[in-house]
Design a protein around this nucleic acid. Structure first.
Lengths: 365, 365
DNA sequence: CTGAAAGCGCTTACAG
DNA sequence: CTGAAAGCGCTTACAG
């Protein structure tokens, strides 16, 4: 009758070995599903481990495997708060991580310098095996810094030079459809309230608006750069509405700015959509419950998180197989892959209508 | 000339010892600021460590210290997304953790069962030294489960039975002030759109509304329970407005529901604040940029995060001093402390006005 | 004040 | 197919 005892401390692998009457090594092999243990023995070991409530010590595994089984994500507090994209993205990430025995370490650095230090420290301490890089900027120094550090990493969105593997989702499709929709409704003066232009997505959205508006032969000088916040969106909207010839439609780079913009319009007695059409971006839960309900752009943030986590774990796997211990050859060089998810989609609701002016409708059907 | 070499692998404590010409132990003592090393020697060791770019291995430290230097926080995806409270709270938590050499592990469990398993696993794997418990529910089984598990934990908000230390911030003050404000404006029919009543904060807000309204001799049957989401807030608002005698003011349990409620009012031609006064809760950035700007309740989420992290780290410290290895005596029993932060405050803006009816104003000055 | 050694709980070549 | 042993990189009593 083996195993008749109760342990008062956390059971370890030697407890399991003793009760199952095998060696420590055999237990480890059995529990990790490696060959070299008879089927019958393996079952006994697993049973004992379960009975004892044994779980491997994360730090012991980490130390011997040189693997933290953890990945990192840093995000500055402003972005953490402002962005409805983040929660479902994280939820997607976590699903995958949990399924593959990994854990998410979240950093909230105060600024860019703190963020860089944070990544260095996580790497140097062996706290994480890899990191996500999000909120990509123009000429972002982080991808190459990370590549040099030898820390496996992927980017959320794709940088022009692409030193790192990435998973991206084309925002441009949504903006393009929004502008096209407005043009089809007959608008000839379509404005844009942009996000910070040092962010890749802020820039891409603006560039797309510009390209499509120009292709339609419409003026491209109706844009104001804001910052994805409500106050920025409100100010930018006021600027556009103060123009001698204000736009009859505004494409916003996110929902929050669009909502604040609608409030500015309302406060001036400009009715949406009769006198001003408006589109947002993000499809926040609130957007469909506005009056009028907001036409916006939706992307699959959860799916993005799932894909990103899977890719990062694969990159980590590949890097360690490739020999992490060779700083002369960056781990990333193994193979750079760029995943592309289904593009963002326009969600039609009630905030767009034909322009108010007596101008002839130029709807091209 | 010691130290003339470059290491290709991660430097360890033995590299530092070799270069500084001392023992491993001395290095460890010097780096941890413990007595037993001559000042002169200590300095040399620190210099060498810095030159070599040495950083302690997190897993090695964890293994020998039986401390993960990490804390956990689990939050279900719906809550993660809906709640503007969370980002600044996390930012506050992270500031403290980073300053004390700890790290935040974020879990996003799909449901209550997954959450419980998640905490168990984090504890059993030794991934974290303690956890935050947020989104407290009525008769929440988690505090006692955690206490039994022996995992150090604190609650965000205080449970009635209070097995665990806690840090809370009184929401009720904000609601009370909101109702009082509306009463002073002359409202006699003040409604409430509540959050889920199985959440402690949802329940507390409703109870406070009820108490203050009753104390003023006003009807207490004008509340609808929703769920903190825009769609829930919209539905609840419609229900109230459909009443034979609808309220002239509505106190919402959060901003999102208030904004959706304002949209419902607008869609019915009910003007805010002339025909309907409205208050929110959270002071989201958007709230001041609405039309009309939303009167709401603000609490210091960042400060809450700071206080919570400090308390949790202290509790962990105390528990390990107290002898974590004694499951017969729960670690928590050491000392239970309840921190109370400055209460939430009403932020007056433009969404409240005297009621429209010809009723005499009963403003009590 | 300092050094040599054991130990934390795993994994993994390496012999049998 | 299995077992004994070394090693991961720290910390910490314990002798000197």
């Amino acid at each position: 009758m083996p195993g008749g005892q109760r342990l008062t401390r956390r059971p370890t692998i030697v407890d399991v070995a003793r009760v199952a009457q095998v060696s420590k090594g055999a237990v480890s092999f059995a529990l990790n599903g490696r060959p070299g243990v008879a089927e019958h023995t393996r079952e006994r070991i697993l049973t004992v481990a379960a009975e004892l409530g044994w779980r491997p010590s994360a730090s012991a595994r980490s130390l011997s495997m040189r693997r933290a089984h953890a990945v990192g994500l840093a995000r500055q507090p402003e972005l953490l708060g402002a962005d409805p994209f983040f929660p479902p993205f994280i939820a997607g990430v976590e699903t995958v991580l949990a399924g593959r025995g990994n854990v998410l370490v979240l950093q909230v650095p105060r600024n860019a310098a703190a963020e860089r230090d944070g990544y260095h420290r996580l790497a140097a301490d062996g706290r994480v095996d890899g990191v996500f890089l999000s909120d990509l900027r123009v000429d972002d120094p982080r991808p190459s810094a990370l590549a040099e550090l030898g820390l496996p990493a992927i980017t959320i969105g794709r940088t022009p030079k692409s030193l790192l593997s990435s998973v991206s989702l084309d925002d441009r499709a949504g903006i393009e459809d929004a502008v096209t929709h407005l043009v089809a409704l007959g608008h000839r003066r379509i404005g844009h309230v942009a996000g910070q232009q040092h962010f890749l997505h802020g820039r891409a959205r603006k560039a797309t608006w510009r390209r499509v508006v120009r292709a339609a032969g419409l003026p491209t000088n109706l844009s104001v750069t804001a910052d994805f916040t409500a106050s920025g969106g409100a100010r930018a909207t006021a600027t556009l509405l103060d123009l001698a010839e204000p736009p009859t439609a505004i494409v916003y780079a996110n929902d929050v700015m669009a909502i604040a913009g609608m409030a500015v319009a309302a406060s001036r007695g400009v009715s949406v959509p009769d006198q001003l059409s408006v589109t947002g971006f993000d499809d926040t839960e609130l957007s469909r419950h506005l009056c009028p309900a907001l036409t916006t752009v939706r992307s699959d943030a959860l799916g993005w998180g799932v894909a990103a986590a899977e890719l990062l774990l694969d990159v980590i796997e590949a890097a360690s197989a490739h020999g992490l211990a060779r700083p002369d050859r960056p781990a990333q060089s193994a193979q750079v892959v760029h995943l592309e998810l289904p593009p963002a989609q326009l969600v039609l609701r009630d905030s767009c209508a034909p322009p108010p002016s007596p101008r002839p409708r130029v709807a091209r059907r």
